[in-house]
């Protein structure tokens, strides 16, 4: 269902979509069945003169089974859903790729994303780290491990095309992974309310081929601690955007 709106751009996107579709089919069946019976009963047993209603306690076995049989069938459906959901969950949230292509650090703060890419040497916390604001660049078809950190409040690192979401918690480092499968540029959202500028925290993820990625990396001078993107620095971002936001609200657009 979801792929009609958003491309599946990670290895696990299709798995998550599968769980969603499975649930849609199973609960859809029960929904339409119940709704159908419901409306049929409403039509069939509408009040007619001279037709009294029946006295059914619902306590006898032959009546009760209209409740108990669906009850067991629903349980069976639940098991399918649980198994599928847990498998996907373990794959996305618990397992890590054994040999990640690279590790990246994602730092949330009010109200900007900072991304630390390991430079050409492929290691974080070295001199050639590339720091960007609001733009994450990754190579297609390579497993990445990310570490989420927050400087102030809760944020949520959400990449809809990857079907990926994870809260960012101050005081903790949260690790996860993804592997992009399609090149392109997509949204990164902050999906946990983080204050007044919550709506102004859009990031972009650029998924590019190995050659493009290498070219981008080569174009960056080493040790760019305050890299500039769209002319704003990390420190200035929050304030500038808030000013921009109040401008938005005042100047009708």
């Amino acid at each position: 269902m979801i792929e009609r709106y958003l491309v599946q751009a990670s290895t696990f996107a299709a798995d998550i979509d599968f769980v969603i579709n499975l649930i849609a089919v199973l609960v859809g069946f029960w929904f339409f069945l119940t709704a159908g019976v419901f409306f049929w009963l409403l039509f069939r047993f509408r009040r007619r003169d001279g037709v009294p209603s029946e006295y059914i306690t619902g306590e006898e076995k032959e009546h009760k089974r209209f409740i108990s049989i669906p009850h067991y069938l629903i349980m069976v459906c639940d098991i399918f859903i649980i198994v599928a959901a847990i498998q996907v969950w373990v794959n996305v949230k618990q397992d890590l790729p054994e040999n990640p292509h690279a590790e990246i650090r994602v730092i949330g703060q009010q109200w900007a994303w900072t991304f630390v890419h390991p430079g050409p040497d492929g290691e974080l916390d070295t001199a050639d780290d590339i720091v960007t604001v609001e733009e994450l660049r990754v190579e297609v078809n390579q497993p990445y491990v990310f570490h989420l950190e927050s400087r102030d409040v809760l944020h949520n690192f959400s990449v809809p095309v990857f079907r990926l979401k994870q809260d960012v918690i101050p005081g903790r480092v949260i690790t996860g992974w993804f592997e992009a499968t399609k090149t392109g540029t997509h949204d990164i959202q902050c999906a946990e309310i983080c204050g007044i500028g919550h709506g102004l925290m859009p990031g972009r993820i650029v998924i590019e081929s190995a050659a493009d990625h290498a070219a981008w990396m080569a174009g960056k001078a080493p040790n760019q601690l305050a890299a500039t993107v769209r002319g704003t620095t990390v420190a200035a971002t929050g304030g500038t955007k808030l000013a921009a936001a109040s401008g938005d609200a005042l100047n009708a657009n």
Binding site: I2, D15, I16, V19, I20, I23, I81, I82, A84, A85, I86, Q87, V88, W89, V92, K93, N156, S158, P160, R163, L164, K165, A191, E192
Partner: peptide, 11 residues
């Protein structure tokens, strides 16, 4: 269901 909530959470 945890697997699909990864996508739907906070939407």
């Amino acid at each position: 269901a945890s697997g699909s909530d990864i996508y739907f959470h906070d939407t």
